[in-house]
Structures are given as structure tokens and as C-alpha cells.
């Protein structure tokens, strides 16, 4: 059986990768993708803990996280489309004015 620590370290690596993407990238779509990577890292940790504790609750929470991720992606991408229509750019630094 793979020890719990292995899963948690993989989860940490994925989470950090996602965080790096959110901070470093200047493309809104890639930033959203990085957030998905972070959510997946969290899912992995939940399921690994659930297996260790012998409970299906880890999977239940993963289910909720996936639902939230779907909602987030829908809203996020709608915003991206709306922004792109106004500014012809995907660079978040361009969207600096509060009103146009």
C-alpha cells in the first residue's frame, strides 16, 4: 500500500505548481487552468485522507469540489469572453480601469 505521505507530497507539488501559475502567468485562461490544478491537488489530498480514515467522506467532498470547479469555470470563462470583447486581450494587467 502506498503510504499517505506520498499522496500528500504529490498534492503539495501540484498545489504549488498551480499557485506558481496564478502568480506568474499573464494569460487569463492559463490562470484559470492553474486554479483547476490547485483544486485537483486539494481533491487528491481529500481522497487520500478518506482512504486512510476508511471513510467515503473524502470522495463526497471531492464531488462538491468538482461541482464548484464547474461553476467557477463557467463564470470565469464567461468573464474572459466579456473582457476579451472589450479589450481584445487576455492579459489581466490590461484590465485596470473600473469602468469603460
Amino acid at each position: 500500500m502506498v503510504p499517505l505521505g506520498h499522496y500528500l507530497i504529490l498534492s503539495a507539488v501540484l498545489f504549488a505548481t498551480g499557485t506558481m501559475g496564478v502568480f506568474l502567468r499573464r494569460n487569463v485562461i492559463t490562470v484559470l487552468l492553474s486554479i483547476e490544478v490547485m483544486l485537483n491537488a486539494v481533491n487528491l489530498a481529500f481522497i487520500a485522507f478518506g482512504r486512510t480514515l476508511g471513510s467515503v467522506d473524502g470522495q463526497v467532498i471531492m464531488f462538491f469540489v468538482v461541482t464548484v470547479a464547474a461553476a467557477e469555470a463557467a463564470i470565469g470563462l464567461a468573464l474572459v469572453i466579456a473582457l476579451f470583447r472589450h479589450r481584445e486581450s487576455l492579459n489581466p494587467d490590461v484590465f485596470t480601469s473600473l469602468k469603460w
Binding site: 503510504p3 499517505l4 505521505g5 500528500l8 507530497i9 498534492s11 503539495a12 489530498a45 485522507f49 486512510t52 480514515l53
Partner: peptide, 11 residues
């Protein structure tokens, strides 16, 4: 997480 994992593996 290593600390948590130690607890988990003990469990």
C-alpha cells in the same frame, strides 16, 4: 503534510 502523514500512517 509529512506531520499529518505520520499521524495517518500510525492510524
Amino acid at each position: 503534510l509529512r506531520r499529518a502523514a505520520r499521524g495517518g500512517d500510525a492510524l
